[in-house]
């Protein structure tokens, strides 16, 4: 056996984590507050829609997914005090009014014939935007100082990918005519436009900028 008292490097050769990150504590808390607000709005509307959709398979998926987003909101709620935000409600807010308008438009469909709109709003717009916001955060935060946020994001992303696939497959099973495809894409465009205005789930800069400086 190797000598247990022989000096070893704290970072093993396969551990490539680095200190620098794009977000300080304050910026992280700001983003986490927006994530929490958005996850809350998502689990609330999923819960509300359950009674409104006649398709039983959709009903059951909405119920299952509702909890997952509530759990994400809970993870962020618990993270806020660890980021020096002792009043989590203060940062639990939308980044801007456009985001409020987006959520209102997402939530609007109620009629039992509007399952396509409901699912498109969540699985073709909102959840893809969650995936990008979380991926950007995970890839840009300090891999050492912000370990707890990274860990939560990894759990959450797993849920988001699973649920996106569930939702996308439900949508594909519901789109059977060119008219329905058109309906789906028009609703998607309408919501996407509002999210562009909002700048993403955490506001402008949610996924950084791809422009050459």
């Amino acid at each position: 056996m190797a000598d247990p008292f022989k000096a070893r490097n704290p970072f093993a050769p396969w551990d490539r984590r680095e200190l620098p990150g794009m977000f300080d504590v304050e910026e992280t808390a700001r983003r986490v507050g927006h994530y929490k607000w958005a996850e809350m709005k998502l689990f609330e509307v999923l819960g509300g829609w359950i009674a409104t959709v006649p398709e039983i398979d959709v009903k059951l998926r909405l119920g299952t997914h509702c909890y997952k987003h509530a759990w994400h909101a809970e993870l962020w709620h618990n993270r806020l005090p660890e980021l020096r935000e002792m009043n989590p409600e203060r940062l639990t807010c939308p980044p801007n009014d456009a985001m409020v308008r987006f959520v209102a438009a997402l939530t609007e469909p109620e009629a039992p014939e509007m399952t396509i709109e409901k699912l498109v709003g969540v699985y073709r717009v909102f959840i893809p935007h969650f995936i990008s916001a979380y991926t950007f955060h995970l890839n840009n935060t300090s891999q050492i100082t912000d370990g707890p946020t990274s860990r939560s994001i990894k759990f959450i992303l797993q849920d988001e990918f699973d649920d996106w696939r569930d939702g996308e497959m439900l949508i594909q099973s519901l789109l059977t005519t060119p008219a329905e495809v058109k309906r789906a894409s028009e609703h998607q465009a309408r919501l996407e436009i509002l999210l562009i205005e909002a700048g993403g789930i955490a506001g402008p800069g949610t996924i950084g900028s791809a422009d050459v400086e």
Binding site: G47, G48, I50, L60, C66
Partner: peptide
């Protein structure tokens, strides 16, 4: 399921 969802 529907009732709990509505309370959310």
């Amino acid at each position: 399921l529907e009732g709990a969802g509505r309370t959310c």
